[in-house]
């Protein structure tokens, strides 16, 4: 009797490991395959059985990408865009979070709830007028035009209010006030150092989300010089006889930096994304 119970559990273990290994394989196979195609000529694609080992065209394929799109310029644009959006969101969210967590003022609850309510407005609702506004102010094909709508981040204010409420004690704020600190000085010298971990969490969420954004950039960036990497990559697939080796080389080199950063900090990444969703 005891033996059968033990045996059943070990079969369960084997099944679970098998399931997990298959799932992991499916998750990472496209990354490997992307690399294989990035090192092969397009013709390799037509072979049966399919090519599964890397070839020798790593450099040639990437040079072909550089021929088609301003790859490094687009990567730089994306980096600047994501960095500015992240910093602005961190600044706006932590200041507002500080106000909501530590100050008393009329209308506080209504204002906070109204910020949360803005989350349910789908971004497409304002797409046409936003485009019109950006066009009117001459911001089409500019990075500022491409980043401005991402400054709004209600989730950031929510997370910051939670974190400041929990980790910055009221006594500390009051004591600083009695020492004659101005409110902004309290924010800068007392609150900011305490909430740095929350900055890491929110920063990762905002940066990753902004990195992958497509619809808005695709709408306002038409000049290849102003492309972000997502728009540039998508433009590789607009002709019918596309060179797959070249295309996946572009995708591979655009994906690898984020993969490296993720592999280095994967625990922080995963805990940040989880926290941002279930708080």
């Amino acid at each position: 009797m005891k033996e059968t119970v033990k045996k059943r559990f070990s079969i369960g273990k084997i099944l679970m490991y098998t399931f997990l290994i298959i799932a992991s394989f499916i998750s990472i196979f496209p990354f490997y395959w992307m690399f294989v195609m990035a090192t092969r000529p397009s013709a390799a694609y037509n072979s049966i059985p399919p090519t599964m080992t890397p070839g020798d065209r790593l450099v040639e394929n990437f040079l072909a990408v550089l021929d088609k799109i301003p790859f490094f310029g687009a990567m730089w644009n994306t980096l600047v865009l994501c960095a500015v959006v992240t910093l602005v969101v961190l600044f706006i969210s932590s200041l507002a979070g500080f106000a909501f967590a530590k100050f008393k003022f009329p209308g506080k609850n209504i204002l906070f709830i109204s910020i949360l309510l803005t989350m349910i407005i789908p971004p497409q609702l304002g797409l046409i007028p936003q485009y019109y506004l950006v066009a009117k102010f001459g911001l089409l094909d500019t990075l500022f035009g491409a980043m401005i709508i991402f400054f709004l981040n209600p989730l950031g204010i929510f997370l910051m209010r939670q974190y400041i409420g929990q980790s910055v004690s009221d006594e500390l704020v009051e004591a600083a006030k009695l020492d004659g600190c101005s409110n902004f000085r309290i924010f800068r010298s007392i609150v900011l150092p305490i909430i740095l971990p929350a900055f890491a969490t929110l920063g990762i969420i905002v940066f990753t989300a902004t990195w992958g954004e497509f619809l808005w950039q695709f709408t306002v960036l038409r000049d290849p010089e102003s492309y972000t990497i997502q728009v540039a990559l998508s433009s590789l697939n607009t002709t019918n006889n596309v060179d797959f080796g070249m295309m996946l080389s572009g995708v591979f080199w655009a994906t690898i930096p984020l993969v490296v950063v993720f592999l280095m900090f994967n625990k922080l990444f995963i805990s940040s994304i989880t926290e941002g969703s279930i708080k």
Partner: peptide, 23 residues
């Protein structure tokens, strides 16, 4: 295992669409 299963999330939707477009 957790990192491998989570990895697809960090690739952009454009990258996913292009890779699966070849697939």
């Amino acid at each position: 295992f957790r990192a491998m299963i989570f990895m697809p999330y960090i690739t952009s939707m454009v990258a996913v669409a292009l890779v699966f477009g070849v697939f």
